[in-house]
Write a protein that binds this DNA or RNA. Structure first.
Lengths: 169, 169
DNA sequence: GAAGATTGAGGAATCAATCTTA
DNA sequence: TAAGATTGATTCCTCAATCTTC
């Protein structure tokens, strides 16, 4: 038999659910209105910008960006059309393909990063105290570890997840 | 000039971002595999189940479920096709329409609720301590208030957001 | 003119099936 | 046979435009 949530639990859950629905939409709108990029586009540009030769195997990129392979294929199709990335054959494995960031892709990322960071500040970092923000990170890691150990590991091993480290001057 | 995030901030942000991307996907899969409902379907059934006569004006329903009007129209189209809801003319305003839950919609909700509550428990409630869960709710409300005052107000005025209160006989 | 709601076009996500190389 | 990647079909979301009633 199911154990229902208490009213208090329902209220906490409801607030959290609204947040995780609305936040991605907000970040998506902010990013799209400033540079015409989706969050997925941005995420991929960030990952490529951090990789050697600004290129990555499709499957690695899919794992890193938490996307399915099929989703990434469609995604890269669109980005190729937009001139942000190119495909190249993998030199060591003929089954494999590389996604390579173009100069235009790099320029786009550099143009988009400041507004995106501002958006993160505006909606998250500046709204909370430093301590609250750290707590949010803690709780997120705990939930992420239970939800998807691989995603958690990916986050843990993270050095620079924001393009700031490479983009700034 | 943009102030970048520190590395520590980036790590917190990254964990949180991964979480808010993966969680809705997980809940969506859980719900869909158990009863063939999307999160949007479920949300609408819950709202209607709590409303007088199990019916609501389209615009009210859109506001409550944080959906655009156009999105809700398409959504209700699909649910009418699936037999979960019906449309009716609003008696007091000829511009308005009501979405009315059908008996089949009610049955579907009752069938879906236990698994969904279990899913919320499994991925959130049971992973955290009571105190952590309460903190998550607190932080969510604070962020929600800054992000979207109306959504925050909707959550605050909430009594029963889970069908538990009405579904459990 | 503004509010309630719908429409249709286009973009993006998922799933199962497919193709190629290891 | 399994792994890397793509494809096509379907579903869902967004946006701008439209229609009706207030």
């Amino acid at each position: 038999m199911t154990t229902w949530l208490t009213e208090a639990q329902q209220a906490e859950w409801r607030a959290f659910l609204s947040l995780i629905v609305l936040l991605p939409e907000q970040f998506g709108r902010d990013l799209y209105s400033s540079q015409g990029l989706t969050m997925s586009d941005y995420e991929i540009l960030v990952r490529l910008s951090e990789a050697p030769d600004r290129s990555m195997r499709m499957s690695d990129l899919a794992d890193r960006t938490l996307a399915s392979r099929s989703r990434l294929t469609h995604q890269i199709d669109r980005m190729v059309t937009a001139g942000l990335v190119e495909r190249a054959q993998c030199p060591v494995d003929k089954r494999g393909f590389l996604a390579v960031m173009t100069a235009a892709g790099w320029k786009k990322l550099v143009a988009a990063a400041p507004a995106h960071v501002e958006s993160v500040r505006e909606h998250i970092v500046d709204v909370l105290t430093d301590e609250e923000f750290a707590t949010l990170g803690q709780l997120s890691r705990k939930l992420l570890a239970a939800l998807d150990p691989e995603a958690h590991a990916a986050v843990q091993s993270l050095v620079a997840c924001d393009p700031a480290a490479s983009v700034k001057h």
